[in-house]
């Protein structure tokens, strides 16, 4: 675990850098807020509705769900790939069976047009 400690320190420093700079910049910059400046940008027209109230396409959600399936699969492949030279042909056949099951699902998703964006 000793190897990971410097990484943690690096992460903390990487967080400290933007935080420190943002607060430092606050001390030296001029702040002249006015109502127009604080409006959301809508190409110069006053906004009547706001982003928090509007709905968005459900396809984004679908993509996120599909991603979970495929990413879990990738994680399964990682240890298999590292040990493949010991598993040999047996390991390949086993993994191809696993992939075929997944590809069946993939084609089902494709045929149901979950991958189309229109």
């Amino acid at each position: 675990m000793a190897n990971y400690f410097p990484i943690l320190i690096l992460g903390l420093l990487a967080a400290a850098l933007p935080l420190a700079t943002i607060f430092l910049a606050r001390a030296i910059q001029t702040r002249r807020p006015n109502p127009a400046k604080l409006e959301p940008y809508e190409s110069g027209i006053a906004a009547t509705t706001f982003a928090f109230d509007t709905r968005f396409s459900v396809r984004y959600f679908l993509i996120a769900v599909l991603f979970v399936v495929f990413d879990v699969e990738t994680i399964f492949l990682f240890p298999w790939a590292v040990l493949f030279h010991r598993l040999g042909l047996f390991g390949l056949i086993e993994m191809v069976i696993f992939l075929v099951i997944l590809v069946v699902g993939y084609f089902y998703v494709w045929k149901r047009q979950a991958l189309d964006w229109a």
């Binding site: 990484i7 690096l10 992460g11 420093l13 990487a14 967080a15 850098l17 933007p18 935080l19 700079t21 943002i22 430092l24 910049a25 606050r26 030296i28 910059q29 001029t30 702040r31 002249r32 807020p33 109502p35 400046k37 604080l38 409006e39 959301p40 706001f50 928090f52």
Partner: peptide
């Protein structure tokens, strides 16, 4: 650094402040 750092009035202020920090941390780590 000297430019005014505007936070829109209707924004979710804390998350708006946090987002750029979150963008930097993983990239440097």
């Amino acid at each position: 650094v000297t430019k005014e750092d505007v936070t829109p009035a209707r924004a979710e202020k804390f998350v708006h402040f946090l987002a750029p920090v979150l963008a930097v941390i993983p990239a440097l780590t």
